[in-house]
Design a protein around this nucleic acid. Structure first.
Lengths: 195, 195
DNA sequence: TATATTTATAGACTGCAGTCTACAAACACT
DNA sequence: AGTGTTTGTAGACTGCAGTCTATAAATATA
């Protein structure tokens, strides 16, 4: 592929992408996904509307990209700290993720929404956002299993899905996604309660 | 409230609502939520566009209502059959729900999408669709707990959220929602595996 | 300098959701 | 029959996403 351009041509404005993305985030926080218009973003970024469409295919694409720019930082895989139980590590990881989401939860919800109507977009969203987080949790649970914190016979992949499912379920249902939820999820996944 | 109308007035066409809803379902199955237009539904039902807006506030409202009409049948609470384990009952219940969803899964996904941008709509969706199903599962799990199929110390409410979360997670992610998923979910919730 | 290529801008245009207005039709009450 | 009220119909209108076209600006290469 390599998508080579024939020769010169006017270069893309190097600053534009950043300016547009940050304008997008600002408007997003202020008004929410539905009320933010492409025209408003373009205007805020002092750029022609078409320039946005030169770089992103849809409003959802742009928003996805804009959110990644700052969400990436929070996606750091939890390092294995041998001094902490895996249970605690998972709890802290979830709390970190949740506290971030309480800031940009609404736009992310809107992304999920947009993803439903667009197969290609849903793939990107899954590949770049959902799957990596799923893997982080699966890996952590595997470590817990190898250290005996979780019984050998359990299906770690399904447990990871439980964790994320519970999280999405709360997020989409508009229920609070907070430390209490994190604790409840982790308690039940590790569920030492054997009566 | 009782919403009384002052006096007579032209009565609503009794057949219209049904005709519109079934036209909606037909077009929905054929083209998917995004590609179905209000105008097309109105035309299919031989009704003015405004008539739709007289009865439903938005496209999502209408689709929600249309889907309920046939989804209601499948929402029957699982009767407690003392001859079957609760684990089997849950598995059968989920299979029933899943097989229905593989038919109208796409429109339902679009509903979730629409719900994200509209608080009022999300409430209706939760109240009429999500919560009742959550309760069915919670009740079933409670029975399982009282019969000893699930340990006393476990948080049944959270387990129910795991079940639904896993289900929504698969649905929204575009993953197959089938018998295998149902079995995996139930196995892990009851997880007799104690190594 | 001349040409080809690519981006940026401005603005027209399409399609759809949802609103609004004017008018006709169907009812209740007097 | 006459009045008031509500629904149905037809069509104009607004706002936004996304497309398309014409033109100017910025680059590379000849």
């Amino acid at each position: 592929m390599t998508e080579q351009k024939k020769s010169g041509g006017r270069p893309r404005d190097a600053e534009a992408a950043g300016t547009i993305k940050s304008a997008t985030l600002n408007l997003l926080r202020e008004h929410g996904y539905a009320k933010v218009t492409i025209a408003a973003i373009a205007s805020e970024a002092n750029v022609a509307r078409q320039t946005l469409y030169n770089r992103w295919n849809t409003k959802a694409d742009l928003v996805l990209d804009a959110i990644f720019e700052e969400t990436g930082h929070y996606a750091a895989a939890p390092i294995d700290d041998p001094n902490l139980t895996c249970q605690l590590q998972l709890e802290q990881f979830l709390m970190q993720v949740f506290s971030h989401l309480s800031e940009s939860g609404a736009p992310i919800r809107s992304l999920i929404a947009a993803a439903q109507d667009d197969d290609a977009f849903r793939d990107v969203f899954k590949t770049k956002f959902v799957k990596p987080r799923e893997k982080m949790v699966t890996d952590l649970l595997k470590r817990a299993q190898s250290k005996g914190e979780i019984a050998q016979g359990r299906d770690v992949r399904m447990l990871s899905i439980f964790v994320h499912g519970a999280f999405w379920y709360a997020l989409l249902g508009g229920d609070p996604v907070d430390n209490d939820l994190a604790k409840s999820i982790v308690d039940e996944v590790f569920h030492p309660a054997q009566t």
